[in-house]
Design a protein around this nucleic acid. Structure first.
Lengths: 192, 192, 192, 192
DNA sequence: GAATAATCGAGACGGTACGTCCTGTCTTCAA
DNA sequence: TTGAAGACAGGACGTACCGTCTCGATTATTC
């Protein structure tokens, strides 16, 4: 069902996509998004330049896919853990996110940057990166309100903005995005 | 005293700097940062391309200066207004900042983006844009604590991060950065 | 056999080479070598600038090829004509060379000039322009000696230098290089 | 009489001209004419760039003066030496010229090259370098005819062209311009 | 002695050209 | 039809020069 029909012609090289994404991640981490050309990625992947254009329409698309291929799935992981307080669940979630960033922080910063001049790409980033995390956090905060751990007077949407905003702000300003930040954010959100 | 000494050689054309910055702002607002070439700025300013290179080492530097030349001073404006509650002062401050962004939001988004691939430039942006606003907000929050308007249990540094983070998050995600957001942020900070 | 193998990749546009060389000759004759920029040639040929760099490493190389493409072959023409005296054969040969110069004298002067600052290019010019003509003249003079038309005491290598030197000297000094010069040279060589 | 009246204003620095010419010769010999910029000469001479423009209108003019300043006078030296045969006088003269070229050959090649794109400069070179040597050689050859050392049937103007042409040809083709060439030329001219 | 005027060091300016790099498209051959 | 290879149009980049110009400072001559 997920297999597209192959109607004649040479089939796509299955290995190509993997080696391209690997080369993309490697180069972007080493040199930074803007210092990596499409030609350099193709060359590092041992692939013709056209092969990249066959599959991704822009460099941003490619990097987006490369970055979230491997690690994009953790967002589906069950955040709900009845044994822990919501505050600790939030902290644990942030630590999980920040750990991923330790490796891919630079590419993600680059993606956010690339999104600023390309509305279509900004939307893609929103769908794949931003919204899933917002949903998780908002759910968690609502659960906290249901369980009386968080006051019903708090605006969970704005709190979510505070949480994500705080880590974007640190990320984009080059400040450490680590366990300490996760704890400080969680503490301040659940302060009252 | 603030004038740099002129130690020989033809002095720089004072008009040139102004027309270059004006052309820069105009073009960046119209087309977006990455769609504007240095040659186009020079041409619009009626100036030789080399003249830009004589004064700014990168396009980011130029745009940074152009954006904050005119509006960078309002941060010095007295934020302290004894007749208003701190919450309203915060809201007023944010409205002021957001008003500026209505005009220069796109260039500033571009600057934040450009900073992600250039540590030196990120530092410059931090000094000229980020830090001054942090200082203002932190002072205000501390005053609020002194006056009993804000609980001493709150971490003003993290609250400042929430405030700035919330607006960066909205800005970079293409959501409205307006008076409503200012009010919502102020409300949530002073919620208790 | 003389065709270079095509080992993958889009083949070079055959028309492009022709139109580039044509534009090169036209512009160099009109404006002079140093007044013609690579960009101007590309533009006149309706071709991207990079296409020129793909094929020739320097402007001198390009002009060299353009100048000798059309007319470089006459050197192969049989100089040996048993019905004429060697003196008249020399005169006819020089007239032939000088006629070519009437059209391309300016580009050739430019090539000689360009060769003075580029040893590699000087060698190329020697191979394509200088040596073939030396060989022809030396052969002719030796034939003249064999037939008793020229004394065996003469040094044909030096006489060849006299002949070519005289016409370079005239060419580079802006003096007429015409049939009269051809006759005068031939007369003086066969004077005795 | 050769001193121009100085009617007010700071007089020109007398040392400047010397150090400029020295720097010019040094740099042109080291790097070649086209690889030397006016700015580099000024810098090497410890002089402002404008000072060069105050005195010479083009780089070619400057180099012309620099090259012939020191050695341009030998052409006035008496070539007539009754004790030697004209052939030996010619050989001695050529050796004298070629010795100068051993040091300044490269700049002179450059000057001939530069002249090809600048008629005014070609004329200047002709006056200062070409014609004086032609006159000397023609006089010598006429003396040789008067004394019976050279046949009256020879065209001394063309012989002069042969002589100068032969050495230009060698010079511009990168062949040795030395005592051996001087002897070979003299021998062949006086062959009969 | 003061005014005048040309020169000098320094360096900005308008301009032209350079050679490199990159993007996205196209065109060939081979699989 | 895909892939490898590479040419092509187009455009931006940063650098290097050129010849001109504009400063402040200097150094003569002329008044």
């Amino acid at each position: 069902m997920s297999e597209e029909k192959h109607s004649g012609g040479r089939p796509r090289d299955a290995d190509a996509a993997a080696s391209i994404k690997a080369a993309t991640l490697k180069l972007v981490r080493e040199r930074g998004y803007n210092k990596v050309s499409i030609a350099a990625i193709a060359s590092a992947a041992g692939v013709a330049r056209q092969t990249l254009y066959n599959r991704w329409s822009t460099k941003a698309d490619l990097v987006l896919e490369a970055v979230f291929e491997e690690t994009g799935h953790y967002a589906d992981a069950p955040l709900h853990n009845p044994n822990k307080s919501c505050k600790l669940q939030l902290e644990a979630f942030l630590i999980q996110v920040f750990t991923h960033l330790k490796e891919s922080g630079s590419p993600i910063r680059s993606l956010i940057a690339a999104a600023q001049d390309d509305p279509a790409f900004r939307e893609a980033l929103r769908e794949r990166f931003v919204k899933p995390r917002e949903v998780l956090v908002i759910d968690l905060l609502q659960r906290a309100q249901d369980q009386g751990e968080l006051s019903r007077t708090r605006d969970v949407k704005m709190l979510s903005n505070f949480i994500h905003g705080a880590f974007w702000y640190a990320l984009l300003n080059g400040e450490p995005v680590d366990a300490r930040l996760a704890r400080d954010i969680a503490n301040e959100i659940f302060v009252a």
